[in-house]
Computed example of a mutant assay.
Amino acid sequence: MASQKEILRRRAGRVRRSLKAVANGRPRLSVHRSSKNIYAQVIDDAAGRTLAAASTLEASLRSSLKTGADVAAAQAVGKLVAERAKEAGVNEVIFDRGAFIYHGRVKALADSAREGGLSF
C-alpha cells in the first residue's frame, strides 16, 4: 500500500503531465500549500528556472497578515506573485495546482493572480 506522500506525488505528477501537454511554451504558476503557509512560483520549464515567486514567509506579508494559512493570505500571495510575474514580462501562465484540489486557498490564490493581471 502506498503512503500518503506517494499518493500526493503521483497525483501532482498526473496534473503536471497533462499541463505540459497543453502549455504551448507558457510558464506555469505552481502552487504549494502547507498547513501553515502557501507558496507560489512562476516557472519556465523550457529554461528550467523560476521567473517569480512569493510566499507567506516573506517579511512584508508576514507583518500584515494574521496567519499564513487562510484565504486572505492566499489572496495576498496571489497578488504579489502576479505583480512580480508582470515585472518579469510574463502575462500568460498555465495554473499548476499540484496535488491540491482547486478549492479554498488554492482557488483564492488563482483568483487574485487573475485580478493582478495574469491570464490563465
Rank of each mutant, 00 (worst) to 15 (best):
A74P: 12
N37K: 00
S55Y: 04
E58F: 00
S35N: 13
V42Q: 01
R33E: 03
E83Y: 09
A46C: 04
V31Q: 03
Q41S: 10
A53T: 13
S34P: 05
A72D: 15
G78P: 05
G48C: 10
R28K: 06
K66A: 15
G48P: 09
R26S: 05
A76F: 01
S60T: 14
S35L: 08
G25W: 01
A69E: 03
A73F: 05
S35Q: 02
H32V: 14
D44P: 01
L61F: 14
K66E: 15
L51P: 13
A73M: 02
A76I: 10
A54I: 07
R26H: 05
V81F: 00
A82F: 10
D70N: 15
R33L: 00
S35D: 01
E83M: 06
A47T: 15
R49M: 06
A74N: 12
V77F: 01
S64F: 09
L51G: 11
S64V: 07
V71P: 03
L29H: 05
A69S: 15
R28M: 12
A72E: 15
A40S: 09
K66M: 08
H32Q: 11
A21Q: 14
S63I: 10
S63K: 14
R28A: 08
G48M: 11
I38Q: 03
R49H: 12
A85W: 10
V42S: 04
S34F: 05
G48E: 12
I38F: 04
Q75C: 11
A59W: 13
A52C: 12
V81Y: 03
S55K: 03
T50P: 13
R62Y: 05
S35I: 02
S30C: 14
G68A: 09
G68T: 02
A59L: 09
D44Q: 03
R26G: 07
V71L: 14
